[in-house]
């Protein structure tokens, strides 16, 4: 439904534009390009998914946007614009103005993001006071209101409790309440439900959907779970080895994937709805950054690889309306690989 709305929206107002983002970590073994040239944009009120496996660079992308890459080991280049304003390489003080107020983030394991020695109330009020000009009392009211909003029963009592007294699902609700407490325009959720059981995951995803509707927040959802993507996202970016390999709206991605990696990923996902006996599997492993292939990064695992794929890296090009893919099969006149789409 949201999809149609996004399509009709003529004046594309982007809240976030990432252009040629490169994040390189300096290590003893040499430079590691965790993200190498990623560009995408996020519209207001849209949920954009970033999917990929371990080491694809999806989390580093989100941390780069938040300005949470440790320096000087990590170096950023390119451009990250929030509502038109350049925010890459801002000073810590300037970034603090944006974090929480404008862009908030929730993480996979809420226990590591909450301070175990302070009460929930304490931590919530601190965040509110830091970003909004409210009195202590008003901040407390705001915190309780937010806890209620995310479906926490007995909000007043929870304010006095410590993180360890809450269950995993409750902690993630607290994190969401905290992230949403200053009405950010963008919520970055990095694997927000990966550590949770499925019935709790369903609760949290439901909550995120409702919050997005109520506050018109844009969500950048980072996940490895294609099921979560299908349920939550309007558009999807697929990352592999630090690069975007495909970008499209969610229906196209599942119904008509273009990149061999995306196809393999979808085919190798076991489904609740089918009993097909043998699963497809992508051969091999994600290459380590030290032994990255020269041409297309996916080439050692690709069943359609041609000579050109070993030599040069393909660019991300349009293969349909709002549908981009970086594969030589699209660029060169190559044998069709469509028969595999089913």
């Amino acid at each position: 439904m949201d999809l149609d709305k996004a399509g009709e929206n003529v004046e594309e107002d982007y809240v976030l534009e990432v252009d040629q983002l490169k994040t390189i970590f300096r290590t003893e073994d040499g430079d590691i390009p965790a993200v190498s040239g990623v560009s995408f944009s996020l519209k207001a009120g849209e949920t954009l998914g970033i999917v990929g496996e371990s080491g694809s660079g999806k989390s580093v992308t989100s941390l780069s946007i938040m300005g949470l890459i440790p320096k000087p080991q990590g170096r950023l280049s390119g451009s990250i614009r929030y509502k038109g304003k350049e925010i890459i390489n801002l000073s810590e003080g300037e970034m603090r103005e944006i974090r929480g107020n404008e862009i908030s983030m929730i993480f996979q394991e809420p226990m590591t993001s909450l301070n175990p020695v302070f009460t929930i109330g304490n931590q919530m009020v601190e965040a509110v006071l830091l970003h909004m000009e409210l009195s202590k009392k008003e901040a407390e009211q705001r915190a309780i209101e937010m806890l209620r909003q995310v479906g926490i029963p007995r909000a007043e009592e929870i304010m006095k409790e410590y993180p360890h007294q809450l269950s995993g699902g409750m902690r993630q609700r607290v994190m969401i309440a905290m992230a949403m407490s200053c009405n950010p325009s963008i919520l970055i959720a990095d694997e927000p439900t990966t550590a949770l059981d499925v019935t709790i995951q369903a609760q949290i995803l439901d909550l995120m959907r409702n919050l997005k509707k109520d506050f018109n927040t844009s969500i950048l959802l980072i996940t490895h779970d294609l099921g979560v993507v299908a349920e939550m996202c309007d558009r999807v970016i697929v990352m592999y080895a630090g690069k975007i390999v495909e970008e499209s709206d969610v229906r196209t991605l599942f119904k008509n994937p273009n990149h061999p990696y995306t196809k393999g990923l979808i085919k190798s996902t076991p489904r609740l709805t089918s009993e097909k006996q043998r699963l497809y599997s992508i051969p091999g492993n994600v290459p380590s950054f030290k032994e990255m292939p020269k041409g297309c990064k996916f080439v050692p695992r690709c069943e359609y690889a041609k000579d050109i794929c070993y030599k040069n890296e393909p660019e991300l090009v349009y293969v349909g309306e709002d549908h981009k893919s970086s594969c030589w099969l699209n660029i060169e006149q190559a044998p069709s690989i469509e028969e595999d789409a089913s």
Binding site: T199, Q201, A202, Q203, G227, E231, V250, F254, T269, T273
Partner: peptide
Amino acid sequence: LSAVPVPDPDFKRERIILSGD
């Protein structure tokens, strides 16, 4: 079973959301 996300954006079903932990 109803809580498991299915990788198909067209898949529709009744979702039973359990309350509490």
